[in-house]
Amino acid sequence: MNYLYYPGCSLTASAREYDLATRAVMAAAGVDLTEIDGWTCCGASAAAPISDLLSLSLSARNLALAEQTTADGQILVPCSACYLNLKKAHEALRSHAKQRTMINEALAAVKLNATGSVRVRHLLDVLAVDLGARHLAPLITRSLSGLAVAPYYGCQCLRPYPEFDDPERPVSMEPLIEATGASVHVWEAGGRCCGASLVSTHPEAGLKRVCSILKAARGADLIVTVCPMCQMNLDAWQPKASRMAGEDLSITVLYLPQLLGLAMGLSHHELGLDLNLAVLGSFREKMF
């Protein structure tokens, strides 16, 4: 299997461990990733309020570069916000003739052209659908039995495009978690919003979202995520959320490929586990 790879800005900095673990797990599963040469920011959630055309063009620039490499390829995207932006641009190029024209007029300024021929895939989609527990199970060399894992999906890999899972009751992570020998923590918070950038701009509202997810995870040994924004809100802001809630909400939070990598016998160095901000001592003793 081959995919074009769009890491996105977060995976080069605050989410480096997500990049390391994604590459390591994919390599161990025999999947080839080709990073898109010269990729740039998708516009995050900041471009769209300022201009739809800017938002679409920033993402389409990356699709155009991907098409130059493999015209009928698929782009693997680990960040949910990047995934949604690239997917919106893909939809616009495929289904809206007028938007396609405008986007390409804009891209002409940087000597590029996009048609929307490459497919945009979230990492979870590729793990759950293309690989699946069937393909991953034989690679598991170390059982994680005894661990209860809370699968946190967040928003933008599920909504608004119900591409590979049920956006109201997501389940795509469960067979993957079970393949590692761990059990799934049953909860309702898996598809609830983490507060996204409100944690920075309106912490009084954003941190409440973080608190309610961390509280719902009680009883689990760890939360796994598939988005750098969700991860940062649930791990980096844990101390602040605990202060707001007036109770200790500490819990280990890993990226999904880090959990899979541990079960596949990859080293914690390869998986970037030293870079995580919330790994409890008890978890470390058990796992490392």
């Binding site: 739809d52 055309l53 679409l56 063009s57 620039r61 809206h96 007028k98 891209l107």
Partner: peptide
């Protein structure tokens, strides 16, 4: 900058570039 400026120029044209959808 070239891409940002082109988008701004396209949006200054009287015909509103993007309508509904998306």
């Amino acid at each position: 900058a070239a891409l940002f400026e082109k988008v701004a120029a396209l949006e200054r044209t009287p015909d509103k570039p993007l309508g509904k959808g998306g």
